[in-house]
Simulated scan of single mutants.
Amino acid sequence: MGNIHRFINGFKLFQQQLYGDNELLAAQLAKGQSPKTLVISCSDSRVDPALLMGCSPGDIFTVRNIANLVPPYELDNAYHGVSAALEYAVCFLKVEDIIVLGHSGCGGIEGLLLGADGNMVGEFVGRWVDIASDARDRAMARVAAGESNDLSCVCEQEAILTSLTNLQTFPWLKKRLLAGELDLHGWYFVIERGELSVYRPEAGRFEVLVEKHNF
């Protein structure tokens, strides 16, 4: 319960910074939002995209879920929270960039890999991360071929590619992508090194975008 008091004090600091020190920003935000970027990131407590990218309120529209996954486009009677947020960002906010932000040490990907051995995790997690079952299969094949000995890392990066592929199954997103009105980006954050990589389609691999922090 002690954390709650810390969070209240944190809100008071936020309140002072936004409403006391930056009244113009608060007035602008009250009129509505117009972010140009959607970030799809993991729910992991260590990977808050606004903190990682030094954002202010109103800078980014975010979708957070286990393992930063995007399901493929489906029209049925099920609930589609990620798809609804994606539709809102693309069709109504008209974002210009979508970043899929994955990270090292992802518990959702760990669950996906455990599922390969028949050990599905929880009532909902196992089914959710199975969205990236193709990423798991590609990762296992790459490790078996000797490309890497870090299955988790490879699978985390492959899952980002699965989300990027699934994004393009949404017809209204694909239309804006082909029209040059939207760009997709795959980012991978290595927590232990403070390093950020980006997927380069022309090279077919992730390359360092921001080098590791020098401790």
Rank of each mutant, 00 (worst) to 15 (best):
I191Y: 06
P171W: 09
G126N: 05
L114F: 04
L29K: 04
E156P: 10
R64G: 09
R136D: 12
M1Q: 13
G2Q: 14
G118W: 04
V129R: 04
S43D: 03
F124R: 14
W172H: 15
D44Q: 09
R46G: 10
G146H: 05
E74V: 14
S83W: 06
A85N: 11
R205N: 11
E23I: 02
E87V: 06
F189C: 06
M53I: 08
A135Y: 08
A141P: 09
A84W: 04
I160M: 05
I131A: 10
L177Y: 14
Q33F: 02
R142L: 15
L29G: 04
H80F: 10
L25D: 03
P57N: 01
P49M: 02
S41T: 12
I160A: 10
E192S: 15
S104F: 01
S163R: 07
G102N: 05
Q17P: 00
Y79E: 12
D59C: 00
C55D: 01
E211M: 09
E192K: 13
L178D: 15
K94E: 14
F170H: 14
D137M: 14
E110K: 15
I160R: 12
V121P: 00
I98E: 03
F14H: 08
I98C: 08
A135G: 05
M140L: 14
L167G: 07
G126V: 01
A89N: 08
L101D: 03
V190S: 14
F124G: 12
G122K: 12
A144H: 11
F124S: 14
K212V: 03
V100S: 07
S133M: 12
L161Q: 15
D150V: 08
A159D: 10
D130E: 15
K94T: 01
R6G: 11
G10Q: 08
I4M: 14
E110V: 12
A144I: 03
A145I: 11
L13C: 07
N77G: 09
L52C: 06
L209V: 05
L114I: 02
G180T: 06
S34R: 13
Q33S: 00
F7N: 11
S197F: 00
T162L: 07
E87A: 15
E158H: 13
H103S: 11
A50C: 06
M120Y: 10
L173V: 06
V95G: 03
H80K: 12
T37P: 00
A89K: 02
G105Y: 04
A85I: 02
P201Y: 11
E87F: 08
R138E: 15
P71T: 02
L51F: 11
G2L: 13
M53D: 09
F14G: 03
G58V: 01
V39R: 03
M120L: 13
I66F: 05
H185S: 05
E192P: 00
G58M: 02
K212W: 05
D76L: 08
T162P: 02
V125T: 11
A203V: 03
A27D: 06
